[in-house]
Amino acid sequence: MIPFSDIERDFAWAVLDGEASVPGPLVGKSGRATSGKTVTRSFAVYQNNVYASLIDALASRFPVTARLVGEEFFQAMARIYIGCEPPRSAVLLRYGTSFPDFVVQFSPAGSVPYLADVARLEWAWHAAYHSADATQLTLAELTEAGPDAEDITISLHPSLGVVRAPFPVVTIWQISGREGKDEPTQLPDGGEDALVVRPKLDVEVRRLPEGGAVFVLALKGGATLQEAASSAMQEAPAFDLKANLAGLITSGAIVSVR
């Protein structure tokens, strides 16, 4: 009698491996014992279910990444990722967090140097979609709370994420996310930083101005307004505090001020 834990282990291994032969003690139709071979197509249903469902999950989580390289390439890339890093939780909506890092390492995608940055932006979008909720401060509440304070600390929305990229990631994401025919596009020079936030139900992606990423990340890390502004100015002397604050306010990214 083979213990079930052994059966389960062999089964799981054969399902994930994809190439492995059918695990030992299976039987085919009408109960006849098989030496593994004659239930290959039946067993393949499980291999296919696991890979197809996870590839679909990744494709719908990284739709622009998939469009950039095409369906066939994306599916093949996702398949390898799944084999290397299968889900570790039954909460599938958390699956794919390490996919952008995988894309960086994946040499066949090396000819699309911005692919991993787009994937990071899409993961930030996905994380914001499922993040905790919070109510943003209205302009009136902000007016009451903030302006006279000497050293303000701003709490940002829990959905807020920042993606910094050496490529124009927001532009690429925007262009490739659009429906319709793709016209040849000359991309702008330099990198772009993205702010991703979901103040209510809709996730918004905004392009951050110079120094904005440092500023927002510092605030997110708990820095006071003053500290965040000086870090931003260190990186970008032209950092415009007023404009950045106004941007954060209109994004609905501020949930409290003290």
Partner: peptide, 20 residues
């Protein structure tokens, strides 16, 4: 079953029907 050790396979996988 769908999990083995720490891996989640995202499919409803079969088990033998026996006392264990």
């Amino acid at each position: 079953w769908s999990s083995h050790d720490t891996v989640y396979l995202n499919d409803l996988l079969p088990l033998p029907y026996m006392e264990e």
